[in-house]
Design a binder for these strands. Sequence first.
DNA 1: ATTTATGCAAAGAATTTGCATTGTA
DNA 2: TACAATGCAAATTCTTTGCATAAAT
Lengths: 169, 169
Amino acid sequence: MRIVIKMKTTANSAPRGASKPPGRALLQAQISRLGLKHSRQRDLVADVFFAMGGHVSVEQLVAAARRNDPRVSVATVYRTMKLLADCGLAFSRQFDGTQTRYEPAAGRPHHDHLICTGCGTIAEFAEERIETLQSRVAATHGFQVETHKLEIYGRCADCRRGKGPEARP
Amino acid sequence: MRIVIKMKTTANSAPRGASKPPGRALLQAQISRLGLKHSRQRDLVADVFFAMGGHVSVEQLVAAARRNDPRVSVATVYRTMKLLADCGLAFSRQFDGTQTRYEPAAGRPHHDHLICTGCGTIAEFAEERIETLQSRVAATHGFQVETHKLEIYGRCADCRRGKGPEARP
DNA sequence: ATTTATGCAAAGAATTTGCATTGTA
DNA sequence: TACAATGCAAATTCTTTGCATAAAT
């Protein structure tokens, strides 16, 4: 089953003129803390990432970053995203098993995902009772929960009402 | 529907003394239904797969199959597992995002997974109330559920009581 | 005899890594 | 000036595929 992910929150990655980049500041803090060095492309990748909203692939990040600086390498994007993930500023997800996707983690509450198998739209939801039941199940098995992943695949409202799997990968 | 079980008296891969291979028969039925051709290595892969229990990687399947016939190719194992999955006889899972793992689907009830981040042990569980809540959440968002994936990661009882992350891939 | 399956190796796709060079502090 | 970061290409890992040959119906 190949899932084509389409961003519903079609965020434009273009750097808004004078808008402040909060994600960049968070990354900068981690960089200082770890004794690493600041760099132009790390800022760029962070800006682009936090501007895009969520569930973005590395491919999308590279494309977006290159709109600002055509010479950023995929390696740098991979390295920067890994840094962000290691710092707890981004979560990495693999919805379809092939590409890794990232979403901002800064101060966002926990949530799980609904993924449309028709158009690839990803919706988020939080259900406290499910979390509770998960902990209970884990306890029953003697497990201490660290993380969990809950993904519900199905057809979204739009795709159900007539619109067949539209051609827009 | 008539199911023809052809038992070869040659190399028997089943560990259980004289037990017959039900999985092989199921595969054979699908092969006939689809107008495909029977083959020795498909039987072998099916036998090995259904004998291994579940959550097996292709790598493990290849190794197990080659104990019976050293010349089975990875390509054939991949192709056979994909056939089994397409026929509904196996589920493919990607717990870690890298390797695909398979588990038998024949007549087994739905379940989700608890995965130990220490030793890699995978336990199964079923919690009806979680399923119910999932459907409800999906309905709220206008989704029609097709499948879902729930994985709880944590430390199993064994790993929690002192035993450090032992090497048991 | 016809058509499918296999095996091998090459091809792909996603991600990582070695290393010379550039950039930062 | 040191040392980390970048870019590029080669290397890795998992999986798929093209093609000649073997096997099944």
